[in-house]
Design a protein around this nucleic acid. Structure first.
Length: 237
DNA sequence: AATAGAGCCAACCGCCACTAA
DNA sequence: GTTAGTGGCGGTTGGCTCTAT
């Protein structure tokens, strides 16, 4: 029976010697033709297994540390746009693998995203109605449902991009009455009873921009993404 | 200290798309 | 046009670790 007979292939965790041998072989032959590479390496592993080990663990320039807040923010946004397109999302996070992002999503972010959706479900109509009827120190007599597309006019947003093109950094003007009104609405939604406090903590990790009243700095409250987080809510509403 | 349950993550599986013969 | 081989992707699993009781 050949060592490359499927019945004779090794499975399970990789040993250090196997990692070393795979690294040497990939360095010599390049990241391609994994079946041939697996045979040539002398490893009792399938080409598929070799490829996976290389891509997810041995490849140079991989980050092995914790996912940062910024990376988490990007994952949440891109998942909202693209769903479970892990490899596509991974391409936007250099050094991270699709497997790593998928695992992180399942263990850290899924609940957070669901909590966030629940939170929005409850408040989005209130928010819409409130903004549409607000006079504040600006004249909104002309504002109607159709002009919800004019986000700058309604929110006092300092820079503008489309939801498709922007990743980050759409912000309320510092001190904008709409910044504080949004904050008020979120707080009123989330700070009613113990259950809702937890709910708000879930939101906070995802939406620091709206949570200045519960601990984040005023700088944070105006520099995190706003429109790209909210646009799916408005547009699917 | 023992143990059950939850969480995490590396690895595997099955499917699909692409390509060459 | 068909088929076999291969690589890539997303879903799932198994085992290890941590935590609560």
């Amino acid at each position: 029976m050949s060592i490359h007979d499927p019945r004779n292939l090794r499975r399970g965790p990789w040993l250090d010697e196997e990692d070393d041998r795979l690294t040497i072989t990939v360095d010599a032959l390049g990241e391609k033709h994994w079946d041939a590479l697996a045979k040539q390496s002398g490893l009792r592993r399938s080409g598929k297994s070799c490829r996976l080990r290389w891509m997810n663990y041995l490849r140079p320039n991989l980050k092995h540390g914790e996912i940062t807040d910024e990376e988490e923010h990007i994952i949440l946004n891109l998942h909202k746009q693209w769903g479970n397109k892990w490899s596509r999302i991974a391409k936007r996070l250099p050094g991270r693998t699709d497997n790593e992002i998928k695992n992180y999503w399942r263990s850290h972010l899924k609940k957070k995203a669901e909590a966030q959706q629940e939170c929005f479900k409850g408040i989005k109509e209130d928010v819409k109605r409130d903004f549409l009827t607000t006079k504040g120190d600006r004249n909104f007599d002309h504002v109607g449902e159709s002009s919800m597309n004019d986000k700058e006019d309604i929110f006092g947003i300092s820079s503008m991009e489309t939801p498709e093109s922007c990743n980050m950094d759409i912000a309320f003007e510092s001190g904008s009455p709409y910044e504080s009104r949004m904050s008020d609405l979120i707080s009123s939604c989330c700070w009613e009873g113990d259950q809702e406090v937890k709910h708000h903590e879930d939101c906070m990790g995802t939406f620091p921009c709206f949570c200045s009243e519960v601990g984040s700095s005023s700088e944070e409250s105006t520099t995190h993404g706003v429109w790209d987080l909210w646009s799916p809510i408005w547009e699917t509403g």
